[in-house]
Amino acid sequence: MADLSPIDLQKALKGADYPASRDDLVSLARSNGADDTLVEKLTQAGSEQFDGPNEVQKAVFDNE
């Protein structure tokens, strides 16, 4: 997947309970079948803890 979209991120994080740690979100994304690019972006997200999906989206897409 060359270009990630917010929809891809939403699908990857389906079922997430917030607040959530970055590691928990990475694990959830993997179990939801997210591709390696999205998992890598989550792994590199700047925060250790996220209060909601908007924070995750901002961390993932602001680093592009």
Rank of each mutant, 00 (worst) to 15 (best):
D62A: 14
Y18R: 02
D62W: 08
T43A: 12
A45R: 00
A59L: 14
A16F: 04
G15Q: 01
K41L: 07
K58C: 12
A29G: 01
D35T: 00
L13K: 03
S47E: 15
K41W: 00
S47G: 13
A45F: 06
Q10I: 02
P19V: 12
V56M: 09
M1R: 08
N54W: 13
D3L: 09
A29M: 06
G15A: 03
L4Y: 04
I7P: 00
G15C: 07
A2D: 11
D23L: 05
E64R: 10
N32L: 11
A16Y: 02
L4G: 00
A59M: 14
R30F: 05
R22T: 02
V60T: 08
A16W: 06
D8R: 04
K14T: 08
A20S: 10
L42K: 01
L4N: 03
A12Q: 01
A2E: 08
A2K: 08
P6R: 09
D3P: 03
G52Q: 13
K11A: 04
A16P: 05
E64S: 12
R22W: 07
P53C: 09
G15D: 00
G46Y: 06
S31N: 12
S47V: 10
G46H: 11
E55F: 12
K14E: 12
A34L: 05
Q57Y: 14
V39C: 08
E40N: 11
A59R: 12
G52T: 12
P6A: 03
I7R: 10
Q57C: 13
L9C: 03
A34V: 03
S27M: 07
D36I: 08
D3T: 05
P19T: 10
D17V: 13
P53M: 14
D3E: 12
